[in-house]
Simulated scan of single mutants.
Amino acid sequence: MGDLHSALVAYGPIAVFLGAAFEGQTAVIAGGFLAHQHLLPLWLSLSCATAGSFLIDQGLFLAGRRYRAARYVVRAAQTPAFAKALEFIERFPISYIFAFRYLFGLRMVSPIAIGVSKIGALRFTLLNLASAALWAAIFTLMGYWFGQTIEATFGRYKGFEHHLTVAAVVLVGVFVVFHIGKCAWPHLRARFSR
């Protein structure tokens, strides 16, 4: 159990950072749960979640901005769906920047689309930072409060929190693998059905 504890303390911040960047809410909730278990400081879980979310979205925005004049991007922007999305983004930029992290399926493409739009880089950076901090706080605190609920419910079992931590880490791992597989399955099926 000491090895698991040491690993969670050493690599937990990295896992929360990468999870916030590439997976989303589940990793951030797990970071809050680890903070409740005193394996990570709460401020560190919040900071790693904010930084991971902010940096990936900032990078995707910059990629959209850098390649918005590329022929394939210009062609994509002329399709009715993309044009409608850009119109919505430019009409409600603050609302969209604060909302896209919560919209299933739009998490990774939205910053690219915003980069293609006319929204200024400084404006996006400031809104992105505020949005990432709010998103991280919501889901980290959900994990933290969930830990309090679990502890209140099962607190009478001595040593139970260690088993619960292991179970939470395993569940998060299974969820991440399932999520990646779910996203990759249509592409793999299309590739092998040709």
Results as ranks from 00 to 15, higher is better:
Asp3Glu: 12
Leu4Val: 13
Leu4His: 06
Ala7Asp: 01
Tyr11Met: 11
Tyr11Ile: 06
Phe17Glu: 07
Gly19Trp: 00
Ala21Glu: 05
Phe22Arg: 01
Phe22Tyr: 10
Glu23Gln: 08
Glu23Cys: 14
Ile29Gln: 04
Ala30Asp: 02
Gly31Trp: 02
Gln37Ala: 09
Leu39Val: 04
Leu44Val: 14
Leu44Cys: 10
Leu44Asp: 04
Leu44Met: 11
Leu44Pro: 02
Leu46His: 10
Leu46Thr: 02
Cys48Phe: 14
Ala51Ser: 13
Gly52Met: 03
Phe54Gln: 05
Leu55Arg: 03
Leu55Cys: 12
Asp57Met: 05
Phe61Ile: 05
Phe61Ser: 12
Ala63Trp: 07
Gly64Arg: 06
Arg65Ile: 01
Tyr67His: 13
Tyr67Ser: 08
Arg68Cys: 10
Arg71Gln: 12
Val73Asn: 05
Val74Pro: 06
Ala77Leu: 12
Ala77Pro: 02
Pro80Asp: 12
Pro80Ser: 08
Ala83Trp: 13
Ala85Leu: 14
Leu86Arg: 15
Glu87Lys: 14
Glu90Cys: 04
Glu90Gly: 11
Glu90Ser: 08
Glu90Tyr: 01
Arg91Lys: 13
Phe92Val: 01
Phe92Asn: 07
Pro93His: 04
Phe98Ser: 08
Tyr102Cys: 05
Tyr102Met: 09
Tyr102Thr: 02
Leu103Pro: 01
Gly105Asn: 01
Leu106Cys: 10
Arg107Asn: 13
Met108Glu: 07
Ser110Trp: 03
Ser110Phe: 05
Gly115His: 05
Ile119Met: 11
Ile119Pro: 04
Ile119Arg: 14
Ile119His: 11
Ala121His: 07
Leu122Ala: 12
Thr125Lys: 09
Leu127Ala: 11
Asn128Leu: 14
Leu129Met: 03
Leu129Ile: 04
Ala130Gln: 08
Ala132Ser: 15
Ala133Met: 02
Leu134Ser: 10
Ala137Leu: 08
Ala137Lys: 02
Phe139Ser: 01
Thr140Ser: 02
Gly143Phe: 04
Trp145Val: 10
Trp145Leu: 14
Gln148Trp: 12
Thr149Asn: 06
Ile150Val: 15
Phe154Tyr: 11
Phe154Glu: 00
Arg156Ile: 11
Tyr157Thr: 05
Tyr157Gly: 05
Leu164Phe: 15
Leu164Met: 15
Thr165Gln: 10
Thr165Lys: 09
Ala167Cys: 02
Gly173Lys: 02
Gly173Ile: 14
Gly173Arg: 06
Val174Gln: 07
His179Glu: 15
His179Pro: 06
Cys183Gln: 13
Ala190Ile: 06
Arg191Gln: 10
Phe192Tyr: 15
Ser193Lys: 15
